Simulated assay, not measured.
Amino acid sequence: METFEIKLPNQVVVHDRVPDMARTLHQQVQGYFRPRLESALAAGEVTVVDVGANIGLFAIEVLRRTGGRARIHCFEPIPDTFELLQMNLRPFASERVRAHRAGLGRTAGTATFHYSPRQSAISSMYDMMASEDKEATLAAIYDPRICEKHHADLPVLMRYLPRAVNSFLIDCHGWWMKRGMTRVTCQLTTLSEFMDREQIEHIDVLKIDAEKAELDVLEGIRPGDWAKIGAIALELHDFEGRGERVRRMLVEQGFDVETDRVCPEDVIINVMRYR
């Protein structure tokens, strides 16, 4: 697998298959670190579970911000991406950081993922090229707050182009992405089964970026395990009413829910902290 070495703004060098994508992901990762999440990480020995770790940028940022105090479990199901994750975590190798080649879901077993080597961050059990995703991207282009804060990968020039032109460009990009996609069968476990296996009694921060499978991950938590989770940082794709279902689920479990709409029609970032 051909990889590139990329120096991030924090001077950390990582490996990825696409030269510029790591810098974009690094900027997007910063959006998770709101004051509440920073507070959850400020305790002494913290345990973090990173679901959808991709190439490891969230985990690396947690290590940097905690001075290496965190114990982190990274979950990445795609074999090629998992290899990059291991490569990027190697300089921080210790018993505190563990990479697991699996996804989290409602039940343990296997699932077929759409894997995109050209943009590994959108690999998913779900179709990430659906019509609602195109509409969300178009909405983001013309909202400067969203584009600057969460979509560093969108060229600034696009906001000055007519909607029809951008629609055509997105269609072309979607065609190019789909040409490179493959299907990969990956292992799944549930968060509760993992906690049992590792004898984890408390998770200070649960981060989920599962590309439309966020509800699947949450539904894999047994009722008795919710109280063991201190804070959740969640990127949620709000389709088929999932936004409201997830919000209601979390409120019922005693969480305070903060939302920051990343795209007017699609994606929300939620940061929750247990009362």
Rank of each mutant, 00 (worst) to 15 (best):
T3K: 13
F4H: 15
E5N: 08
K7D: 04
K7P: 01
L8H: 06
N10M: 03
V13H: 04
H15V: 07
H15C: 11
D16K: 00
R17H: 08
R17F: 10
V18L: 10
P19K: 14
A22V: 07
R23A: 13
Q27P: 01
Q27N: 13
Q28A: 14
V29E: 07
Q30W: 01
G31Q: 13
F33V: 05
F33S: 05
R34M: 06
E38P: 00
L41T: 12
V46R: 00
V48A: 07
V48G: 04
V51I: 14
G52C: 12
A53K: 06
G56H: 07
G56R: 05
A59C: 09
L63F: 04
L63T: 06
R64S: 07
R64V: 03
R65P: 03
T66M: 05
G68I: 04
A70N: 03
H73L: 15
F75C: 13
P79M: 04
T81N: 07
E83R: 14
M87K: 15
R90E: 15
R90C: 13
F92A: 13
S94K: 08
V97C: 05
V97D: 04
G109S: 06
T110R: 15
T112F: 00
T112A: 13
T112Y: 01
H114Q: 11
Y115G: 03
Q119I: 12
S120M: 14
S124I: 10
M125P: 09
Y126I: 03
Y126K: 15
M129A: 08
D133R: 12
D133T: 14
K134D: 02
K134T: 12
E135W: 02
L138V: 08
A139Y: 04
A139P: 00
I141H: 04
A152K: 05
A152I: 06
D153H: 15
L154A: 08
R159V: 12
Y160G: 09
Y160N: 12
A164K: 13
G174V: 04
G174T: 07
W175C: 08
K178W: 01
R179H: 09
M181Q: 14
R183G: 02
T185S: 15
C186K: 09
Q187V: 14
L188Y: 11
T190A: 10
S192G: 07
E193A: 15
F194T: 03
M195C: 15
D196G: 09
R197C: 11
R197V: 06
E198P: 01
H202V: 05
K207S: 06
K207D: 08
I208L: 10
A210G: 14
K212R: 15
D216M: 02
V217M: 08
V217W: 06
L218P: 01
L218D: 01
G220M: 05
G220C: 08
I221M: 02
G224P: 00
D225Y: 09
D225L: 08
D225W: 06
K228E: 00
A231C: 07
I232R: 02
A233I: 03
A233L: 11
L234I: 09
E235K: 10
L236H: 13
G241C: 10
R242Q: 14
R245A: 13
V251L: 01
G254K: 05
G254I: 04
F255H: 00
D256P: 00
D256T: 09
R261S: 02
C263H: 09
P264T: 12
I268K: 10
V271P: 00
Y274I: 00
